[in-house]
Design a protein around this nucleic acid. Sequence first.
DNA 1: CATATATGTAGACATGCATCGACATAACGG
DNA 2: CCGTTATGTCGATGCATGTCTACATATATG
Lengths: 122, 122
Amino acid sequence: MMQRARRAGALGPRLERLTGTDGAACLPKYAGWGRAIAREPAFAPALARAKALADGHRLAIAALLRRHGELCGCELQAALGVSHATVSHHMSVLGKAGLVSARRQGKWMYYALRPGAFLEIP
Amino acid sequence: MMQRARRAGALGPRLERLTGTDGAACLPKYAGWGRAIAREPAFAPALARAKALADGHRLAIAALLRRHGELCGCELQAALGVSHATVSHHMSVLGKAGLVSARRQGKWMYYALRPGAFLEIP
DNA sequence: CATATATGTAGACATGCATCGACATAACGG
DNA sequence: CCGTTATGTCGATGCATGTCTACATATATG
């Protein structure tokens, strides 16, 4: 209904002008679009995954886990060359984003990529 | 060869211990893993895409373009409720990351999602 | 129990970056 | 031409966050 006019050629402002609707009047509609997107249930998880992968070290961790399977914290620390505190912080971020799983075995924490560890536009 | 021992069960440090190789000696190997990942040709573009999508407004822009097809800057500005300078900055980031295409039509810049606008672990 | 190793947590510090106002540029319309 | 609209660019600013050291906890080993 409201979509009809806009989708007909994807010529937003031009079409608004042609149909006599001034620009200001259509702003609430566009604001509604933005709010609807942000409230989408898939939006927040997708944003969390994007934020988690948006760091060079965390993306490298994910790539390492994809190649070598399960790895423990000390191995990741050696691979990245950072402090263990940094590794622990990064694994917490990746875990809360649902990208990696963690299991304890003795002194070591073994991390692995969860199935579906990728990002699509919500 | 070197991989063999590690991949056999994915029990890194434990196996190193059992085979008599002390932990310190294996550090260069792990560092090599990290360097190899970061030098992968697909790594830098993937990181750029992740960084581009790691902002709430930019992820919302991508989602809006996915739903409504081509949109112009002023429509995105209305949808997000931010200044036009912010929209311009975000579109620049998304464009440099290869996620969005831009074409000029009269006064308006029309943006659209590029095919393959998603993120996989490199 | 004492020690060493592996990891988690807290706080401090520095860098990155999202945002905006102000100005510049481009394109259409009078 | 001159004004309006849409967008790009620049500099400043405030907040988010990646990193570290220091300390705490957990587990295995002597």
